[in-house]
Design a protein around this nucleic acid. Structure first.
Lengths: 268, 268
DNA sequence: CTATCGGCGTGCGATTATCGCGCTTAATGC
DNA sequence: GCATTAAGCGCGATAATCGCACGCCGATAG
């Protein structure tokens, strides 16, 4: 009910990057913005809250909500609207059609068994890292680790590994003007520290991160490239720290990750 | 490349169910249809294939594809378009905002530990059952069991359990004019048999299904209602058959499912 | 070698679908 | 009881979407 924060108003520019104004369907963009306006803190939206969160006028927002409801993607009690599971069809289209998640799955499985942790394949999406495949025991974390989950890139070893593949100036741009929210007492929030971690990852070709996202957990990740040299994503493993030293964990896990990386190189 | 099948052309009626023509955003519906046109058999679409699969004209389909590309939901080599993981943001909005998956998670976890199988919470979406929460060892199945996964309702115990909550005449409508594709040699494909299974589930208040979707697996499910009596979904467990008898499995698992069901009743 | 076919991109005029203002009503709170 | 905020609705304006028609290209076949 109480909406204090006048949230982000993206206001995507239509044609800036060389798209003909004629080829721009405004309605689609607005509709997707409406869908993404639902979140943990705003699970139910009214026309006016949706309007505020998306920068669309109230009247228009209402039309989009009604349309989505009619399509079955939203439910409504007349005033409030909320997402239905049908929205998952859209994500499902990706898992159904994308070859990468399927291709990496057996490798993740093998690694999980060999090293005894949860393994992931992740890609970068703007500021965040998305986990598109995973294997192994779904960890504690109130609701397990959902596929398609996303966290700020600096919190996951895979995120750092992927950032390290970008040119340093882009990394700098990424680091500036950003607030890093701590998830544990050990979370690094200083841009300078992050920069050095990223450049170390660039030199090493891997990244190891400890207790950034979760206590007593470390992650190790290596970027994966295709034959043509593009970065396809990163494979990572999450291990309990226990009383294993950083060095021990590295010598144990890194060769396995590397092996999977090279095997994937041939496939992607 | 070769497109033999002129697929389904949904052609959703705009206002039939009492929606003002003014409140219908055609562009949004078409865009979502385009997204859902991507699938396992059609992972990459061109303007004309997309047009055929959605019933939109080629010119329009191209515009939608370009718009989605511009928004980052699609990638393209100039002619072909394919989905990027960013599309998962949409599904993520659901997991982020929906309270149900979060609420059931601890119960699924407890049940998994106690009974030693994979547990699920599922809802019905038209013909299919969607798994919106799960816990326990991700099973074999090439890519594990992704959250948001969907299968034809008759193949999963949760699907039958949910169908059994619908009035019989609706079930009959559901059964007619539908092709049931076998997944194992044991898959039931006769509408009459399915009808009796559903009505048995209605009498019992639970459903047990064996080897419908996968060999040597059985599923047991009970529907879950809210305090107001609506069906919120179904909880189910998937167990290896091994040499446990049907009766043994039932007496072992059903009380646990029932207990979780009653506990959830208070929450939903 | 050339004809044919299917697909792609583009431009344009037509029209209709979308926009948002402004009004009324209802609910909440001080 | 009045102030504030939000919802629904109707309407006129216009800008956004549509799809036809054209030209080009690549593949296949005769």
């Amino acid at each position: 009910m109480t909406d204090e924060a006048e949230d982000n108003v993206p206001q995507n520019a239509p044609q800036e990057s060389g798209l003909d104004r004629r080829d721009w369907i405004a309605g689609l963009e607005k509709g997707l913005r409406i869908i993404e306006a639902f979140s943990d803190s705003h699970p139910r939206l009214t026309p006016s809250t949706a309007a505020r969160r998306t920068g669309i006028t109230r009247t228009a927002a209402r039309r989009y909500l009604l349309t989505l409801q009619h399509l079955g993607y939203l439910q409504s009690d007349g005033t409030h609207f909320w997402l239905t599971p049908r929205i998952l069809r859209l994500g499902w289209s990706y898992f159904d059609s994308a070859k990468v998640p399927r291709a990496v799955q057996p490798f993740l499985q093998r690694m999980s068994i060999e090293l005894g942790g949860a393994t992931f394949f992740a890609v970068l999406d703007e500021d965040e890292v998305i986990f598109v495949a995973r294997n192994g025991t779904s960890r504690v974390q109130s609701q397990g680790f959902v596929l398609g989950a996303r966290v700020a890139a600096n919190l996951a070893s895979a995120g750092i590994a992927l950032l390290s593949c970008k040119p340093p100036e882009e990394v700098d741009r990424w680091l500036t003007g950003r607030r890093f929210i701590p998830y544990t007492p050990h979370t690094i929030t200083q841009p300078d520290e992050l920069r050095s971690i990223i450049s170390k990852a660039r030199q090493n070709g891997y990244c190891i991160l400890e207790q950034q996202l979760e206590q007593d957990r470390r992650g190790i990740a290596v970027p994966v490239r295709t034959r043509s040299g593009e970065v396809a994503g990163a494979i990572s493993i999450s291990l309990p720290i226990g009383n294993e030293s950083t060095q021990q964990a590295l010598t144990r896990a890194l060769p396995v990750l590397r092996e999977a990386e090279h095997a994937l190189l041939a496939l992607l």
